[in-house]
Amino acid sequence: MPFVRIDALGADSERLDALGRAVHDALVETIGIPPDDRFQVLVGHDGTSSTLRYDDYLGVHRDHGIVYVAITMRSGRTPAQKQALYRRIAELAHAYAGTQPRNVFVTVTENESIDWSLGNGAAQYAPSPDTANPLSSTAPVS
């Protein structure tokens, strides 16, 4: 159940769609997200008055093709899975949207099941109150 936000400089709706597909396909392929589990915010920024800023950092040269991908998901993936995810996002962003891999900046933020409400004001992934604390029953505790 990842939540993805993609901000891209100079991106029209076609490029944003391609980037969204690239990230989703990479999530499905590398960490097993179900194909119908897509929740994304796609934002294009124009090149003249853009609020996106970037520098060359750690030897990575970036340009006006910069794409920021922020993924929020439940914790539990291994470092190897995350590295495969980053690599695949960069590959697919290049294949689908023509974005140079050096311009794909990805960050992952992890949280716990209780941190999600998927609608109706409910915490669907949280344990039910009856199973959350086995000592909360009315039976005497021995």
Rank of each mutant, 00 (worst) to 15 (best):
F3S: 02
F3K: 08
V4S: 07
I6G: 06
I6Y: 08
I6E: 08
I6K: 05
A8W: 01
A8G: 00
A8D: 03
L9M: 01
A11F: 00
D12L: 03
D12I: 11
S13P: 02
L16Y: 08
A18R: 03
L19M: 09
L19W: 04
R21C: 06
H24L: 12
V28R: 01
E29R: 09
E29A: 12
E29K: 07
E29G: 09
I31T: 10
P35I: 10
P35Y: 06
D37Y: 10
F39L: 07
V43I: 13
H45K: 01
H45G: 02
D46S: 04
G47Q: 01
T48K: 06
T48F: 07
T48R: 06
S49M: 03
T51L: 12
Y54C: 03
L58A: 14
L58S: 12
G59H: 14
H61W: 02
R62H: 10
D63K: 05
I66P: 05
Y68S: 02
Y68L: 14
V69D: 15
A70W: 06
A70M: 09
A70H: 11
I71Y: 12
I71Q: 11
M73A: 12
S75A: 10
R77D: 02
T78L: 00
Q81W: 07
K82I: 12
Q83E: 15
L85N: 15
Y86L: 15
A90H: 10
A90C: 11
L92P: 01
A93W: 07
A95Y: 00
A97W: 02
T99Y: 02
V104L: 10
F105M: 01
F105C: 00
T107E: 13
T109W: 03
E110Q: 05
D115P: 01
W116R: 13
G119T: 14
G119I: 13
N120P: 03
A122M: 06
A126Q: 13
N133E: 13
L135C: 07
S136T: 15
A139F: 13
P140G: 15
S142G: 09
S142K: 09
S142Y: 06
